[in-house]
Every structure is written in C-alpha cells, then in structure tokens.
Amino acid sequence: MSASAFVRITRPHNAVVAGLTALLGYLIATGTHTPPSLLLAVVVVLITAGGNVINDIYDVEIDRINRPDRPIPSGEISLSGAKMYTVALFAGGIAFATLTTALCLAIALINSVILVAYAIWLKRIPGLGNVAVAYLAASVFLFGGAFAGIGGLVQNISLAAITFLATVAREVLKDAEDVDGDAAGGARTLPMIIGIRRAGMLAFACACGAVLASILPVGDWWGPFYLTAIAVVDIVILFGASRGLWCTTSDCVRGSGATSILRTGMFAALAVFAVAAII
C-alpha cells in the first residue's frame, strides 16, 4: 500500500473543489468569511472523499476491465483497506460536522447516507441516480448557508435550486450522449428508457425550472445588479438545454455541446451569486 494511492483514490481535486464550494455557499449566505467557517471545507472534503472511495469499492469489477490502473484493481490498496479507509473518512467528516451547527450536522449525515446508497444501488437506477447527483451538488450550498443558521440556508435556496435543476438537465443529457456505449455495456439509463428526444425535452424543462428559481426574491443579494447579471446567465442555460431539445441520436447530443454550455452557465451563476452577495 502506498501513501499516494490513498490520496488518489479520494479524487482529491474533486473533494477539494467540493470543500471550496461549501465556503462559497457560506460567503453567498453571509457576504463574508470567518475562521470557524473553514470547518465547512474540512467536513465536505472528508465526506466527499469517503464517497469517492466507496464508489471505487463497488465499481472494482468494472474498474478491473476499464480502469485497471485505479488503486484497488492495481493492488495498491486492498479491498479491506479501502473499506476501512472509507469508514474513517466518513467518521472524520461527521466528527468535524459536530463542531458546526445542528443543521450542518443533519445535512452531513443525510449526504453520507446518500453517498453510500448511491455507490451501492442508486446510480444503477435510471433517473434516480441523476437526481441523487444533482441533490448532492446542490446541498453543498445549503450546507454552507446552514452554518449561518436557518436564515443562511434560506438565502441559498435559489442557488441550490438552480444547481439541482441544471445538474439534472446536464446529467440527463450526458446519459443521452452515452446511450450507444451504455447499451453495449449493459447499462440502463433514463434516455434509454424514454428515448433521447424525450430526454432532451426533460432537460429543457429542468433548465426552465432553474431559470424560474433564479429570479426568486429570497436573498439579500436580490436587486438590479443580480437580476441583470442572472438574466445573461439564464440565457446561457436555456440556450445550452435547447441545443439538445430536438436531438434523436447520441451523436447529435454530443455534437450540440449542450452539456458544456450548461456547465458554463452553472459556473457563471456561481460567480453572479458571489459578486451580488459581496456588493
């Protein structure tokens, strides 16, 4: 067992970005940062890392074929060692969460359960796996806001709703891009069940929901600057989702660039919220 393998299996870049996102959530909710808020990043990094490790544990047979270089199939980390590691990561994250607030602790516990359930069976259920991923992405902002109490959580509802709905749209379109490969591999995704055309329509409906959520007047940042800037972001999100609206094949969805445009819109929305909260 090597130390580098224990770092790589956590997908550190993914975990660190999630931790920084929690801090951004607190910034958006309060307009500032305090030293204790750094605990948010620690909690999210540890729990996200635990989720990444348990995913590798349950994907080990697939990785033996597709990713033999991953730490478990390559033998750098034993299966039993990985199981103990993921328990330690989740336990550490929850332990630090007890030093935050009751709301933050509740979210940390719920998300830990969902991450475990996702690795074991949720990701194999068409549609439900997409919803789980979207919730986990959105909940990081609620977690950051919850450190400031219920008021902070409410401040971040719009951003969480945008993130959730836009992520569902993007996840569905990503599955639509991969229909041919998933079918060959025996996977079962939502676009394979309802068809690529209907998947595109569902993604566009979710994008419309994200736009509606973006104009809800629930935060202190809501005002002329925010409404002007978010209008531009909303156009990007709707444009991205509309690119896959009429597609009937995987090649069409891939060629449309819909998922990349949606990702750009989501990052732009974060920037707008952050700037609006500060000013």
Rank of each mutant, 00 (worst) to 15 (best):
L142N: 00
C208A: 13
E171R: 09
V218L: 15
S242Y: 13
V168N: 05
F147P: 01
A205Q: 09
A258E: 08
A210L: 07
G209D: 10
I162S: 02
A258Q: 06
A183H: 11
T264E: 13
L190P: 07
C247A: 14
F239R: 15
G195N: 08
V233N: 04
G195V: 03
Q155F: 09
G244A: 01
A268N: 02
T167N: 13
A160M: 09
L227N: 11
F225L: 15
L136F: 08
G186M: 05
G200K: 03
G181C: 08
D182C: 03
A199Y: 11
W246T: 14
D180G: 03
G244S: 04
T167L: 04
E171P: 02
S214F: 05
P224M: 04
D182L: 06
V253G: 00
G219S: 15
F143I: 04
G265H: 01
D234R: 00
P224G: 02
A274E: 14
T163I: 09
F164K: 07
G144E: 11
G257Q: 03
N156G: 01
A184M: 13
W246G: 11
D251I: 01
I237G: 04
D220F: 15
G200C: 05
I162W: 07
R198F: 06
C206F: 13
G255E: 07
N156H: 02
I235Q: 00
M201V: 13
R263T: 11
F164W: 08
R243W: 08
I193H: 02
G152K: 13
F204H: 12
R198V: 03
I237W: 13
F141I: 05
E171F: 06
L212A: 15
I215T: 13
I279Y: 15
G144D: 05
S139M: 14
W246S: 12
A274Q: 12
A148T: 00
A169Y: 09
A276P: 11
L202I: 12
A276K: 14
G145E: 08
A258R: 05
A277V: 06
I215W: 14
D175E: 08
L173M: 11
F204W: 14
I215V: 15
D251C: 01
S139L: 12
